[in-house]
């Protein structure tokens, strides 16, 4: 049977999101999405011994956008930065017991926000150049039928 509505895990994370908030003076900060499209996520990290020591998020968006943000912070916490860079949108969706098809792309930006925060940190410590931080992410828009209309 086709899944109806959101999975139990999505609703659980939506109703009880983990790691909500702001970190003052974070080691890394990433923001993805656009309020015009209905989704905006930001992730703050602190790094200790090359691992994600603390992580917080804030999200404007639908149920899946909030659940995805919460889940990705749970998945990333305690991982080394290289490990955290390997977390994909698909991994997050799977951990959440799946997302409705129309949400797989638009509202599934948690991994992108995490990667942006890590790259922001790497730029700060001189590990990568700023232009390298821009490359390599899946685009937010561009898939057929999923433009946000602006």
């Amino acid at each position: 049977m086709a899944q109806i509505g959101y999975s139990k895990e999505v609703m659980e994370h939506f109703m009880n999101p983990r790691n909500v908030g702001v970190i003052e003076n974070p080691d890394g900060y990433g923001q993805v999405g656009n309020p015009v499209c209905g989704d905006l996520m930001e992730i703050f990290i602190t790094v200790k011994e090359d691992k994600i020591d603390d992580i917080k998020f804030r999200t404007f968006g639908c149920g899946s956008a909030i659940a995805v943000s919460s889940m990705v912070t749970e998945m990333a916490k305690g991982k080394t930065l290289d490990e955290a860079m390997l977390i994909t949108r698909k991994d997050v969706a799977e951990e959440l017991g799946g997302l409705p098809p129309q949400k797989m792309h638009c509202s599934n930006l948690g991994a992108d926000a995490l990667h942006a925060a890590i790259k922001n940190y790497w730029v700060k410590i001189g590990k990568i150049k700023p232009e390298e931080a821009e490359a390599g992410e899946e685009s937010h828009e561009g898939e057929e039928g999923e433009s946000c209309g602006t």
Partner: peptide, 29 residues
């Protein structure tokens, strides 16, 4: 965002409302 409003009203307060938010539509517009 409206879908989050709808879901919270339903899950937390058992109140059913509707929204014109893009995220609740099939087209995402």
């Amino acid at each position: 965002e409206g879908e989050s409003i709808l879901l919270t009203m339903d899950a937390m307060f058992n109140i059913q409302v509707s929204t014109g938010s893009a995220c609740s539509s099939r087209t995402l517009e």
